[in-house]
Design a protein around this nucleic acid. Sequence first.
DNA 1: CGTATTGTTGAGCGTAGTCAAAGTTAGTGG
DNA 2: CCACTAACTTTGACTACGCTCAACAATACG
Lengths: 262, 262
Amino acid sequence: MQNISAQDTLIRKLTTHSRLSTAESAAIAELPARIMNYERGSFISRQTDFARDAFVVLTGIACQQQTTRAGARQILTVYLSGDVANVDPGFAGESQDVIAITPVEVALISLDALNHIFTEFPNVGTAFRREAASELALLQSRLVSLGRCNARQRIARFACEMASRQRASGGSEPEFIEWPWTQEELGDLTGLTAVHVNRTLKSLREDGVLALSRGRLQVTDWNAIEFAAGLNRNSSDQKRPALHKCLADLSLQPTQAEYRSI
Amino acid sequence: MQNISAQDTLIRKLTTHSRLSTAESAAIAELPARIMNYERGSFISRQTDFARDAFVVLTGIACQQQTTRAGARQILTVYLSGDVANVDPGFAGESQDVIAITPVEVALISLDALNHIFTEFPNVGTAFRREAASELALLQSRLVSLGRCNARQRIARFACEMASRQRASGGSEPEFIEWPWTQEELGDLTGLTAVHVNRTLKSLREDGVLALSRGRLQVTDWNAIEFAAGLNRNSSDQKRPALHKCLADLSLQPTQAEYRSI
DNA sequence: CGTATTGTTGAGCGTAGTCAAAGTTAGTGG
DNA sequence: CCACTAACTTTGACTACGCTCAACAATACG
């Protein structure tokens, strides 16, 4: 992943769901990109900023959050390597709060340049619209999680989502998945408190579903975690493009009987 | 609203955030549209359908939902008059469950025709990308609601969202807003049970925040409901386009002190 | 007028929140 | 290498918000 350029990362991401012509790929490859590095906990963009650039995450994990006046935080989106953010800022050009969860390397791409490509190569615009649609689908999945799942299911679902997405962006299926989250952050992701996240993780560990060590999560029993999440393994057919497989993974939930037995 | 064509409805919606040239508007105006009517409770599209058409809601209220294997339902998106759905179906062309909450009149527009316009008029594609971005922002707002708000705030927020969006699509600020929701449906919208929705509505009624009668919701005290929702009135400046104002309305939350006093 | 759907209320329970304290880990500087 | 600190994790005791189950009332509807 080290020597791959920002533009290549972007092209690779878009081609997971859209076909790009040589000219279109070439145009993207010629986009000017400024590389920026952010350390853990720092803001990559703020709500109050005027958005001039989209950015592509090259390495590390970032996430978009919203803070309530009460000081409560809700994490809305997790950006992994290859993910694009800030392509369509709000009406007044406002950005959103995006922070680095791990040290993050991003490529900034000017919105002007991007919009220029969209005009010249409408198909690239469509690819970005699909990208937005994927993000929307992930968000919907998380809404179901917060609205209709208990703590155990929410955390198991999130672990499955991370595993599935890292499998997609990282290549092969890893035994361990990157897991930089503090329990506070997991709470802000799942709509729980850090204390309850702690208890829930403990229960999952005791049941032999997963194991945590030094920034890595090991899924000791894939069937068990997908069962705890209310997902069914057989939807993980290997034919679909990665993200879409991930979304299919997240689309099903446990039956009432399963729910009670968890 | 009766005599306005489907294409005009679409153009009006897009021009709330994007500027369309005469040629672009004309191209949209020439899109073939099939009008369909659905009665309350019927499916407008199903997850298992292959998506061939996008649709524009002309009159009525529809919503997209996801049902868990446990039989729990989460309502994800509410479509009001003018809203567009199904523009970017999933990878395999799958649609989503969309049902009619009231009798609904929709215009079906073939995805092929739409994609043809996107190719010929990239700017229209961009307008639809902005449309998707708005939907994403609304979804984010609802994620904050489910993740970090209590029942009272969730319901008050939803009422504010409906009021704001109906104000936007319906024109002037109405004393009464359309409120076809059963308490069951409100529960599925807010991640609560129907019984708890009932108690929460009762409390809001008793506090003189709102009143319900025959499919209409009357907000008796705008300050009170926005306070209960954790929103602040002063963000409702009249300068912004409607939906974006709505989103701004929903972006702020109560302080800890306010939360306790509610 | 009868039936189905929706709304209302009560009692009891359970999941998750709150508060507080102790334990652990990681990072920093002497 | 160890001491010190800050951040994070773990645990306990208690609370409370929202869920469940159940019965009944009010509407809507054919």
